[in-house]
Simulated assay, not measured.
Amino acid sequence: MTTTNDPYLLRRLLWCGPCEVHFVCINKAEFDPQKQAHVPKRHYKCPLGCRRELLSAEAIESQAWTEAERRATISDIQPPCRQSVLEMLLVKVVIGRTFADVEFTWLT
């Protein structure tokens, strides 16, 4: 298990199902009403542009981590090691035609 400073846990694992390509990582500033300022937010996007919406990195990474916790006893893994753990457990994560359509392919 290795640590990383990469903020995108699924960088090498997240795929666009319809296009069969890896998602790319995008930083985009969004307005935060509580801070009354634009703040950077992490997203994933299909590089071929099949989707106009960006996929929230926080949302899909949280979903992937929750699924990984169901499969293995990993609840005490600290964030810098989580990318490494997901890469050991997952082959890929495919986003289908909608962002709610998520398929996890696990190593067996």
Rank of each mutant, 00 (worst) to 15 (best):
V39D: 12
E87M: 11
I60T: 08
E69M: 12
K35E: 14
L14K: 02
A100I: 01
E69A: 08
A37D: 14
L14F: 05
T73Y: 11
F23E: 03
K41Q: 14
E30S: 10
D76W: 06
P7I: 11
L10Q: 02
C25V: 13
L14M: 07
H22S: 07
Q63I: 05
L9Y: 06
P40T: 03
R71K: 14
C46L: 04
L90Y: 01
A37T: 12
L90D: 08
L10F: 02
I60Q: 08
G17Y: 03
A59F: 03
A57F: 01
Y8I: 03
K45R: 14
Y44D: 02
F23I: 02
P18D: 05
V91A: 03
R52P: 06
Q78F: 04
C50S: 01
S75A: 13
K92Y: 08
P79E: 00
Q36C: 09
I74E: 09
V102Y: 08
R71A: 08
M88D: 14
L13H: 05
R11Q: 11
E20N: 14
R71E: 02
G17I: 08
H22R: 15
E20K: 11
A100T: 13
E53D: 10
I26G: 00
L107C: 09
I60G: 04
Y8R: 04
E103Y: 05
Q34L: 10
F104Y: 14
A64H: 12
P40F: 10
Y44T: 01
